[in-house]
Design a binder for these strands. Structure first.
Lengths: 341, 341
DNA sequence: CTGAAAGCGCTTACAG
DNA sequence: CTGAAAGCGCTTACAG
């Protein structure tokens, strides 16, 4: 077994309280004594026992606040599943997780949610931030608790970690799959969500770069926005397919609104010859892939994003660490009809 | 906060010791009292506090034994990394993990390792079992500790869990990628490890099924065994390439020995036109994929296999649960040059 | 600046 | 069959 606080106290000839104060930099310890204690701890490779630590800390009523988009969107539901799983685990360590779902991209709403949580005394924050000046400024002001930007990042130099997808690589991967399924020949339509979301743009860029570099006979004809909305997506594609003078036969959905868009494509009798690449999964998506309508979907591990985010904040709290601006990217998965579990 | 043992004791009008005995079925409790305690616990949704539980259990000196292949093989090194990460985490809960690496497929050696660990008093076992009658029989006899077959399964009805790859689906996925990269045309050579390993055969079967069903112009010409050995692999492929009257241009490595085999292929001047699909990754593999020599590799999350296995056994120990024969399959990943982290 | 003591929730000899 | 008490390793008022 590793060395304990009690043993360090014995060696140093001080009380356990003093060792605790020195080890956790709580202040109010004679510098020489502190130095000595740290030295002993280092020599013996002291590592705090997490179980004991958290048991003692249960009295403190610690909590993590989460602000997350929720658009009755399967993707974010899965992120939330991950958050809940982690929350369940750390509940045993006396830490509560409060989830606030907000709709849409209203900066004012998100700002006041941030204030509300901070005022309620949370000890860490996870947020899907709007990439907006005011939000960034507000988050940068908070310097006493760790913060993680979840799934979507914000610009600038700061101490806010990021856990989520590398959208550029995700787009590149989609481009490669488009090239393979089309055998490098065809006319491509890109259906993105909105040009105001950074991640969507990065995907389109990655996709376009690979197509242009590796598949010169695959022509990108047009890019449209569906606002992540199934109905808009349906109507737009219905229209384009009908009046199509560009012979589009390859479709890349860079964001949401896939169900609606694919419905329009399925109503066309050329559908089985179309190449369709999407992002993320849902039960309906899986069916469309297994039946061969959608050729491949590029995934980003939403469950892990939620889970890892909470676990990381938990670590910060337990070790009194702040976040430092680290970026963690989840795996980019490729799902074909054969490799679902 | 959830209800505690102390509170249950108060409500039931008994001591905490008695509550503990009832809740953990340690025996020696008046049936009526036990019934009452269980009832109260259920009503109030009692859940034991893991931190407290394990802190108290540190005195018991619990341990998990691991028997794992080790062939100086990058794949199993990564499994072991996962095991070590989990071991580090559960060390805080006072549980030790002992790893025994064994080489090759010697049934006698594996049997005596099992006996050795059991006699040393382990509380759970993880093993990459040889799929052999004697081994299966020996493992089935052990009915007092949880057991997980790691990465490779054994046949039969038993209480031994499995955590690892679904090799058939892995092979199907490889077949689909071969079809895509070859544009459905070519002559295929399958390089497997050995026909005596169940997983290798399942991969070859999945691969073959997809090729035959979906890519009629892709012809499987031959299947060879390289015994997972780089040198054998090199020599075999060198030979086949040289005297090739079958115009082989597509290669599926169903197991190990990839570095050696690919080296032989790279020495041929048709190499850049070859389609090469492999399994798993390693630093050298990643280079070969990024440079375009290998077109894709099908992965199975070795780190997670090791990590999840130990965590599951930890759960069993903490909750005094046995394994029940459950199968857990890790994700089948597809890696192209674009989607590495 | 420091120590003695109580407490977090659970388990385990020990005594009866 | 049951209770009282000590202990796991750490933290935190409280007193000095």
């Amino acid at each position: 077994m590793a060395i304990t606080i009690k043993e360090i106290a014995n060696i140093a000839g001080v009380s356990r309280g003093t060792v605790d104060r020195a080890l956790n930099a709580r202040g109010g310890v004679n510098p020489e004594v502190e130095e000595k204690i740290l030295q002993i701890a280092k020599e013996h490779g002291y590592k705090p026992n997490l179980a004991a630590k958290s048991l003692a800390m249960t009295q403190q009523n610690l909590s993590i606040g989460v602000i997350i988009y929720s658009e009755n969107n399967q993707f974010f539901e899965t992120v939330i599943d991950g958050i809940n799983e982690a929350a369940e685990e750390i509940k045993e360590f006396g830490i509560t997780v409060t989830i606030c779902k907000i709709n849409g991209f209203d900066v004012g709403k998100q700002l006041s949610k941030i204030d509300e949580l901070i005022n309620s005394g949370i000890n860490a924050l996870a947020i899907t931030p709007i990439n907006d000046e005011k939000i960034i400024k507000r988050l940068e002001e908070i310097d006493d608790i760790p913060i993680i930007a979840l799934n979507t990042d914000i610009e600038g130099e700061h101490n806010i970690d990021y856990i989520g997808c590398d959208y550029y690589k995700s787009g590149q991967t989609a481009g490669a799959m488009m090239g393979l399924f089309s055998k490098g020949m065809g006319n491509v339509l890109i259906i993105t969500g909105t040009h105001t979301v950074y991640g969507h743009n990065r995907r389109v860029k990655g996709f376009t770069d690979v197509i242009q570099k590796e598949y010169p006979s695959l022509l990108i004809k047009q890019t449209i926005e569906n606002n992540d909305d199934d109905e808009i997506s349906y109507n737009l594609l219905k229209e384009i397919i009908k009046s199509d003078n560009k012979n589009i036969d390859c479709f890349y959905f860079a964001a949401a609104g896939v169900d609606g868009g694919v419905k329009a494509l399925m109503e066309d009798n050329r559908c089985k010859d179309f190449v369709i690449i999407t992002n993320d999964t849902s039960p309906s998506r899986i069916e469309l892939i297994k039946s061969g309508i959608i050729n491949a979907t590029i995934c980003q591990q939403p469950f892990e994003q939620g889970y890892n985010c909470i676990k990381e904040l938990f670590n910060c709290i337990m070790n009194k660490k702040m976040t430092t601006g680290k970026k963690s990217y989840t795996n980019i998965g490729i799902k074909l009809k054969y490799n679902f579990n």
